[in-house]
Computed example of a mutant assay.
Amino acid sequence: MPRIGVTGHRDIPAAALPSVRSAIRAELGDATGGVEALSSLAAGADQLFARIALDCAVPLTAVIPGMDYEAHLGGDEVRASYRRLLASCVARVDLPAEPTHEDAYYAAGRWIVDHVDRLVAVWDGRPARGPGGTGDVVAYARRTGVPVTVLWSPGARRS
């Protein structure tokens, strides 16, 4: 079964959301013979991708960075969404501890890239704001030959 992973920004501008949602649905729906989705279930793109996968009856695997992940996800709403999504996953991969949170996020992104047939990137095309960000994961995928589909709305800017 083909596997599609996701990387993306935590903050997706409202102007970009409709096209990103539609594009994720198309990416997941275009896979013939079924597909499996992989996500770290972080706020923003990861949770959006995971929700759409589940809405489309696509099996979802959670890839959990090696850190106190849930405590660093954001507010109560994001953590509650994370728990709901995690409970709906068909599998969970817990990665080993890393020295920093940035290292843990990047390790999770690389793990996803190393275990998928293609990567969906909800990405504005700009460099990562910190080590292990979306731009770094996209660069890693491209270096290793994993096809990347960038989803973004032209002209949309992150805050």
Score class of each variant (00 low, 15 high):
86 L>R: 15
105 Y>I: 15
87 A>Q: 12
84 R>A: 14
39 S>A: 15
80 A>V: 07
49 F>Y: 14
65 P>G: 02
82 Y>P: 00
45 A>K: 04
92 R>Q: 15
52 I>Y: 00
49 F>D: 00
67 M>C: 14
116 V>G: 03
60 L>H: 06
71 A>P: 00
67 M>S: 07
55 D>G: 05
92 R>M: 09
89 C>F: 06
38 L>E: 14
77 E>H: 11
103 D>E: 14
69 Y>A: 03
62 A>H: 10
109 G>R: 04
128 A>C: 07
46 D>F: 05
59 P>T: 09
112 I>N: 06
96 P>W: 01
124 D>W: 02
127 P>E: 06
123 W>Q: 05
123 W>P: 01
78 V>N: 01
79 R>C: 11
61 T>P: 08
41 L>T: 07
85 L>S: 06
120 V>M: 05
47 Q>L: 07
119 L>A: 07
47 Q>P: 04
73 L>R: 11
91 A>M: 08
106 Y>G: 13
75 G>H: 03
70 E>I: 12
132 G>H: 04
97 A>K: 10
99 P>Y: 04
91 A>G: 14
75 G>F: 05
80 A>N: 12
62 A>L: 10
70 E>R: 15
50 A>R: 01
93 V>D: 03
46 D>W: 05
133 G>A: 04
119 L>G: 07
58 V>C: 08
99 P>T: 09
106 Y>Q: 10
73 L>A: 12
39 S>V: 12
70 E>T: 13
106 Y>A: 14
116 V>A: 08
68 D>L: 11
76 D>I: 06
113 V>M: 11
46 D>R: 02
129 R>H: 12
78 V>I: 15
52 I>C: 08
98 E>A: 15
93 V>C: 04
128 A>Y: 13
91 A>V: 11
39 S>Q: 08
120 V>C: 05
81 S>W: 01
124 D>E: 10
114 D>T: 05
84 R>K: 12
82 Y>L: 03
64 I>Y: 01
65 P>W: 03
60 L>G: 07
39 S>M: 04
65 P>A: 09
91 A>D: 15
49 F>S: 03
61 T>S: 10
37 A>F: 03
64 I>D: 01
87 A>N: 13
52 I>P: 06
137 V>K: 06
135 G>Q: 10
41 L>K: 02
126 R>A: 15
55 D>P: 00
131 P>F: 13
135 G>V: 04
74 G>H: 00
38 L>A: 14
35 V>H: 00
108 A>N: 06
65 P>M: 07
71 A>L: 13
72 H>Q: 15
49 F>I: 09
97 A>T: 13
51 R>V: 09
130 G>F: 15
61 T>R: 11
105 Y>A: 14
106 Y>S: 10
96 P>T: 02
74 G>L: 06
89 C>D: 06
102 E>T: 12
38 L>C: 13
94 D>L: 13
126 R>N: 12
58 V>F: 02
122 V>F: 06
62 A>K: 02
68 D>H: 13
101 H>Q: 13
50 A>L: 09
48 L>H: 01
113 V>D: 08
46 D>Q: 07
69 Y>G: 01
61 T>M: 06
76 D>Y: 09
61 T>C: 12
49 F>W: 09
82 Y>K: 05
64 I>A: 02
102 E>Y: 10
64 I>F: 01
95 L>C: 06
42 A>C: 13
68 D>Q: 12
38 L>S: 07
